[in-house]
Design a protein around this nucleic acid. Structure first.
Lengths: 101, 101
DNA sequence: CATACTGGTAAGTGATGACTTACGGAATGA
DNA sequence: TCATTCCGTAAGTCATCACTTACCAGTATG
């Protein structure tokens, strides 16, 4: 069910923006907040959700906390959609072959 | 921005269940509703969202409406995640190569 | 110690959204 | 035409959630 949390995490536009920012490269909370039209606490809350969903990881560096996307989490999501992709192609093929006996 | 609508569409658990049911094969509204713990109108509303997001397509068959997943929509989502996958691998490589001089 | 950064947490608010029941409307079969 | 089956839509409700401001804790630097 972990992919469920991931999809829900990426559903909120602002949170998706946070994630896409981190995809460009690791950043601190303040750095992410600077590029977004929301407050820093809002970003902090979004990062918590993303971290719980295993989409980003946190690394402490002195007084800062550096967040980065977690490749393993992304892999889970990719596998999820790949599965449906295969099923969809299967169904599509079957429907063409007129197999609705 | 169409992938945004898609992710938001798949965020709701019930709606994701509707989509996953259709991934197994096309079905009518009633058939989908029969396998879920929600009312038929609820399923109907979910299907509308999924259709607007281009994740499913509708085909009229007599008095019935057959819904099926739209492979093109799925392709858009896959491309979206593939892009981040590539970026994530790039960042990962860079971080290993100790490039934080 | 005092100050200035960092950032997580609490509490409150306004909006969104996922449901329900009730209804209407189109196609089939007698 | 009448009844039946299929389904979308309207309206209302309850919960969730994304955001704000205010506050507090930890780490450097004078």
């Amino acid at each position: 069910m972990t992919y469920g949390m991931m999809i829900e995490a990426l559903a909120a536009p602002t949170r998706r923006a946070v994630f896409e920012r981190l995809a460009q490269g690791p950043a601190s909370v303040g750095e992410v907040a600077k590029g977004l039209p929301v407050s820093r606490p809002a970003v902090s809350q979004h990062l918590r959700i993303l971290k719980e969903a295993r989409l980003v990881s946190e690394r402490r560096e002195g007084v800062k906390r550096i967040y980065a996307v977690d490749p393993e989490g992304l892999a889970v999501l990719r596998r999820y959609f790949d599965r449906f992709w295969d099923q969809a192609l299967d169904n599509f093929k079957r429907s063409i072959e007129g197999g609705d006996t």
